[in-house]
């Protein structure tokens, strides 16, 4: 379903070459629950951005659902991000002006989903993350864990083939982290494919496969027993 083939990412900054990722290859199948771990600076986030079509590799291929994700145009990438990827950020990235519901509606507005279908879908995904009673709350009226659940609901609205979460509990106290982990576990059980970058041991433990990155290279890729 998702395949990274010899992906490298090189940054050049004032003549200094930094190889953030070198020769990364792996596949993700439908229904997998994967943790990518590694020390900071190991290239985890860079890899995640490439998988999320937010960034492009310097060399190598990234194939998502049989489609080569490459530098065609900004708008093609935007459409891939909109329809095929659900991205969850460490800092939630909710728009503070809007209610939880409106934040969740946003991807559907960009996709041009007919208006009458949007509300039903948004309510459905908010129910999945257990926030059907907080729909009208503005983000600043929600706890960190609730904000992140809104963000997860937002990622689910377009029924993407994969959920990518970049340190989803990084900004949360531990009890709120747990509620997020539970949500991810539940989603995986329903068949969602999930890739999580994390420092959090207890999240990594719940996943079924752990990929370890060090200095931009995969040092281990093993099922989690």
């Amino acid at each position: 379903m998702l395949e990274a083939r010899n992906i490298s990412k090189i940054y050049e900054n004032g003549g200094v070459r930094t190889e953030a990722l070198s020769d990364i290859s792996f596949k993700v199948e439908k229904g997998e629950f994967i943790a990518i771990i590694g020390p900071s600076g190991s290239g985890k986030s860079t890899l995640m951005h490439i998988l999320g079509a937010l960034d492009l590799p310097t060399s190598g291929k990234y194939i998502l659902n049989g489609r080569n994700v490459e530098a065609t145009s900004d708008d093609v990438l935007a459409e891939i991000r909109n329809k095929e990827i659900g991205f969850i950020f460490q800092s939630f990235n909710l728009l503070p002006r809007m209610s939880a519901l409106k934040n969740v509606l946003l991807p559907m507005a960009y996709a041009g989903v007919p208006k009458n279908q949007r509300l039903a879908k948004a309510k459905e995904v908010l129910k999945v993350v257990g926030l059907e009673d907080k729909m009208e709350n503005a983000p600043n009226q929600l706890s960190g864990g609730q904000k992140q659940r809104v963000a997860i609901a937002r990622a689910l609205t377009m029924e993407p083939s994969i959920l990518l979460a970049d340190e989803p509990t990084g900004n949360l106290p531990s009890h709120q982290s747990d509620e997020i982990i539970d949500v991810f576990e539940g989603l995986n059980k329903k068949g969602h494919t999930i890739v999580i970058i994390t420092h959090n041991e207890s999240i990594a433990k719940k996943t079924k496969r752990i990929i370890t990155l060090v200095d931009g290279k995969i040092v281990s890729d093993e099922p989690n027993i």
Binding site: G52, D74, D75, N82, N93, P107, Y110
Partner: peptide, 14 residues
């Protein structure tokens, strides 16, 4: 940041 987020969620340039 908002613009980045909107683009990440699928907003096109137009």
């Amino acid at each position: 940041t908002e613009i980045g987020l909107r683009k990440a969620l699928g907003a096109k340039r137009k």
